[in-house]
Design a protein around this nucleic acid. Structure first.
Lengths: 208, 208
DNA sequence: ACCTGAACACCGTTCAAGT
DNA sequence: ACCTGAACACCGTTCAAGT
């Protein structure tokens, strides 16, 4: 975790880790079988300091929104460490703690097993996907020497200068597409998703 | 692209590519500056054979749903090639073609610039995130020697056998959480997201 | 129980040199 | 304009051997 936070995801190599521990890289393989296994452990560890209680709300929609937003910010707080979690079906204790908590919100809302599982997954996928996309300019930054802002600005200029005849919408929305407000952007989609889940719940209640 | 489809994402190395082209790996660097740049090109290329027209619907919601679903299936059709696109802010011609098309749906629906951009991004993030998560068992499969199904089943058993006292919801939903119906799962979240976007549109119309 | 040395089979990238 | 040889500075992983 120290390496991840100090030097980023790409610096997480067996050799660096061994150095950090004052040991040779071959020794690590007594403790885990593959680097993949190590990353599974680290991915779970990334949620160790994520507060899973302490933000309950009377309204389950509010609670879901708050929890998702907090996880989003948590995953973005440690450099690009979020890349570790993204798309990993972890089953470590910290991940399970969060799963349990999240599913609880949906059950409390009155969703049946199937809907709770699917809705929870949808929200989870949205959060992780958003984290990846927010981190993406950061890794393209790593490749070239630009700041995150410069990468986004360059993209904006590229979009704005496209031929209007073939890409009228892209050109028209160049500004909106590259707006820097990541949190607002995240909440926009999150709120849509939650609203849709609510509506689906109401629909299935009517039927049942 | 041949390498990606035949041998998967991990086999995409400069050396393999050079072999495929009957050339030495150093030669590649005359054609692109870094592997990152090559991947940008390939990510766009992955949408070259994605049909962006030919599925228009009278209802914009239907059209959005159909387009998102098609893209989802397209990205999953070629082994784990979807990992290339995931979280890349590409600006190649094929990506732009799809962006233009997608944004058009939202504009046609009557969303303003800001909402169209944000909604489009939300859907895009959801699709990509889902692709990554669907591909994840496949890459953990690559690590061990298991089939995708076995990985999922192992996860199901792990979840089902957890202590019920601490993880009541996870245990209760173990089946639903590991259901194999990826398309149904995808459409569930997608439909929620679209429903939420519709509702938000109606809300902002009322205000305006 | 835990670590090391030494090696294996790879990576991406650079650069002077070739045609 | 395009390619090669040779090298550099890395990877993850294995395995016999050490304590």
């Amino acid at each position: 975790m120290r390496i991840l936070e100090r030097d980023g995801y790409n610096a997480l190599t067996t050799r660096n880790l061994a150095d950090e521990l004052g040991v040779k890289s071959a020794s690590l393989y007594w403790h885990f079988r593959t680097k993949e296994e190590l990353e599974d452990l680290l991915a779970d560890e990334e949620l160790a300091d994520f507060d899973v209680e302490g933000w309950s709300r009377d309204d389950w929609q509010e609670e879901l929104r708050e929890g998702a937003f907090r996880l989003f910010k948590h995953l973005l707080a440690k450099r690009d460490a979020g890349r570790l979690c993204a798309g990993r079906l972890a089953t470590g204790p910290n991940t399970l703690r969060w799963m349990e908590r999240g599913l609880g919100i949906f059950r409390r809302a009155g969703l049946n097993a199937h809907d709770a599982a699917f809705a929870s997954h949808a929200v989870h996928v949205y959060i992780q996907g958003f984290v990846i996309f927010t981190l993406a300019p950061l890794s393209s930054l790593q490749a070239k020497g630009l700041s995150r802002r410069e990468v986004v600005n360059a993209t904006k200029r590229t979009l704005a200068r496209l031929p209007v005849a073939t890409y009228p919408n892209v050109v028209a929305l160049a500004d909106a597409l590259t707006e820097r407000d990541a949190e607002g952007r995240f909440l926009f989609g999150l709120d849509c998703l939650i609203a849709g889940i609510v509506q689906r719940k109401l629909g299935s209640l009517k039927k049942g």
